[in-house]
Computed example of a mutant assay.
Amino acid sequence: MAFIKHYFLLLVIFSLSLNVYGKLSTNFYSSTCPNVLNIIKEGVDEAIKKETRVGGSILRLHFHDCFVNGCDGSILLDNTSTFQSEKTAAPNNNSARGFEAVDLIKAKVEKACPGIVSCADILAIIARDAVVYYGGPTWKVRLGRRDSLKANRSAANAFLPGPSFDLNNLTTNFANVGLSFRDLIVLSGAHTIGVARCATYRAHIYNDNNIDPAFAKSLQQTCPRNTGNNNTLQPLDYQTNFRFDEKYYQNLIAKKGLLHSDQVLYNGNQRADYDVKKYANDQCKFFKAFAKSMVRMGNIKPLTGTDGEIRLNCRKPN
């Protein structure tokens, strides 16, 4: 009887361990690397002080990582003899940046806690810290992700949202990774910081009707219709480019969204228009919703347990 009770207890413990296995936790490194959050925050602060726009870049890296096979750090991998990097996929090529900042932060973390903290987790943390640096909301980042062993360039080409997407494309794109229509509206608010290249907004300022004519004309001065200037930069939020706030949504209502994929969020769809107006008029609601959506996005198919690895260098598998 004692043996049976003991065996039953082991089964219960094993069952409970299965229930928690694979889940992310806000205190994952509390004993193995207790100072990791402070180390990363200091690194993010240093990086943005050195280059003001890099915070928007590293926030975008987390997005583009999670939308391709889940939040696994794959976007950070360089080319190898066995796979092509996601960095050269069409949505990332000449666009994704901030890799050097990630390298410096990873090096500091490795010095303090060798082989403990994944690159995927670092991306999740620096995304939060960048938002906070620019005056945005904070949230508790769930940790415990592990790093992929390879990149997937074809998936990056297929699944990353593009600047020419319409609302249906965007809705499907977000649904494919388990995110809702409201997550789409909320997470697009990340464009309250950052810049975009002429090549990404050219079609919007010349071909679309849902744009303020004077705004379009001003952008056309430095982004010609057919020739050159592809790399000319414009702020995604022309009002407060380096401030995380609700102005992005106010821009959409004024038909001054920089990208086609921005402005389609306020273009006659009742659900989308309602949420855009709500967040344009209430920064607190936007901040609260953004924090929740970032947690959901960060939980897209993470590698945990014994899957993947903890990369020592974010640019290459061990």
Rank of each mutant, 00 (worst) to 15 (best):
C198P: 05
A156R: 02
V131P: 03
R128F: 01
R197Q: 09
R142W: 14
G194W: 08
V186D: 02
I116E: 12
T200D: 10
V131Q: 10
R182C: 04
R145H: 11
I122P: 07
F99G: 01
F165C: 07
K111Y: 01
R202P: 04
V117A: 03
A101Q: 12
I205S: 10
R97E: 12
A151R: 12
A130M: 03
A158E: 15
L123T: 00
T172Y: 13
A112N: 07
G135Y: 10
L160Q: 12
S154L: 06
W139V: 01
A151T: 11
A96M: 00
K111C: 06
G194M: 06
K140N: 15
R153A: 15
G178I: 09
C113G: 11
L123Y: 06
F181I: 01
A96N: 11
D208G: 02
L104C: 09
C198F: 09
T138G: 14
K140W: 11
L167R: 08
S188G: 09
P163I: 07
F181H: 06
N157G: 02
N176L: 04
P137Q: 02
L187T: 05
N168K: 09
T200P: 00
K140H: 15
I116R: 08
G194A: 05
I116Q: 14
V109A: 01
A199Y: 02
H204K: 02
G144M: 06
Y206F: 09
S164D: 13
R153G: 11
V177G: 12
N168Q: 08
K111L: 14
E110R: 07
A124G: 10
R146F: 11
L170K: 10
S148L: 06
A199M: 03
I125C: 08
V186F: 04
F159N: 15
A120H: 02
N157D: 10
V132H: 03
Y134K: 00
V117C: 04
T200V: 03
A107C: 05
L170N: 09
I125A: 05
T200N: 11
S188C: 11
A101K: 07
G115Q: 11
P161T: 11
D129P: 12
L179N: 03
I122W: 09
N173C: 15
V195C: 03
D121N: 03
I116P: 02
Y201N: 09
R202K: 10
T171A: 15
L167M: 02
A107H: 06
G144R: 07
L143E: 10
G162R: 14
A130W: 11
